[in-house]
Amino acid sequence: MFEMSLPWWELVLRGAAVYAVLLVLMRLSGKRTVGQFTPFDLLVVMLLSEGVSNALTGGEESLVGGLIAACTLLGLNALVSRLSARSDRIRKLTEGEPVVVGYGGRILDERLRAEHVTREDVLEALREADCDVADMKLALLEADGKISILRQAKDMAAHLRG
């Protein structure tokens, strides 16, 4: 139960390597949030965890080995969170920045394709904001995957009165 087949430091290095590679891959995969996962996205995440489990533990099946791997991942996550809170540069690198996906009543389809977001996602955000496409000043795909809508100034005054 407490005897390990690998040295503890190898589990830490494996955990750090897997964390770093997955962080990069998740950043490259787009800005879809957990709440926006399609069944396909969920399946990929589940298979991803199974696929990297052996790389993470190197076949180590002891309780201590699993706990070392878990602590490494949680520790790295806490470290990245703290560094991101203190540094805009690290935050932009790990979390990304908002991207304009609509402007002046036009939805920018090329930006949507580049960010792996559908036109329907923007239309849904417009409906939630009770805003027509023509009244949209700006649509932003936030770093967390949420789409924010800003209305034209003239429409805002009418909307506030009505």
Rank of each mutant, 00 (worst) to 15 (best):
E110G: 02
V24T: 05
L47H: 03
S53C: 06
E60K: 08
R91K: 09
M4L: 13
E128K: 13
D155W: 09
L6I: 11
A134P: 08
D130P: 00
L63G: 09
L160R: 15
L47D: 01
P98N: 14
V12Y: 11
D130I: 08
V52Y: 14
V133S: 01
R151L: 15
S49G: 15
V52T: 12
R14N: 13
A114R: 14
G35L: 05
Q36S: 06
K92Y: 06
E124L: 15
L11V: 07
V12F: 15
L23M: 14
V52S: 05
Q152W: 04
M1F: 08
R82A: 15
K146S: 15
P39V: 12
A125H: 12
Y103T: 06
L108E: 14
A134D: 15
S29R: 08
A55N: 15
G105V: 03
E10A: 09
L138Y: 10
E60P: 00
L28N: 00
A153M: 09
G30A: 03
D155E: 14
F2E: 08
L123F: 02
I147W: 01
K154M: 04
V18P: 00
A78H: 10
K31V: 01
S5C: 07
E124R: 12
S81R: 13
A139D: 09
Y103V: 05
K92E: 08
A20H: 03
L140R: 07
K137Y: 10
R113G: 00
L13T: 11
M4V: 06
L67A: 15
V45D: 02
L28E: 00
D109G: 00
A143F: 00
L108N: 09
R106S: 11
K92A: 12
A143H: 03
L160D: 12
H116F: 03
D130K: 11
S29P: 08
A157S: 13
C71F: 15
S53N: 14
E110H: 11
V12G: 11
L13G: 06
S49E: 06
R14A: 08
C131H: 05
L25P: 00
M1D: 07
T118F: 04
V12N: 11
A153Q: 14
L112H: 01
S84F: 06
V12D: 14
L11F: 04
A139Q: 09
D41N: 12
C131I: 09
E120V: 06
K92M: 06
V18W: 10
G75M: 03
A69Q: 09
I149Q: 04
S84P: 01
R161G: 01
G35A: 03
L22I: 10
T72P: 01
L76T: 07
V100L: 07
L112V: 03
Q152N: 10
G162I: 11
T118G: 02
V117Q: 14
V80D: 07
Y19E: 05
R119E: 02
K154R: 13
V21H: 04
E95G: 04
R151Y: 15
P98Y: 13
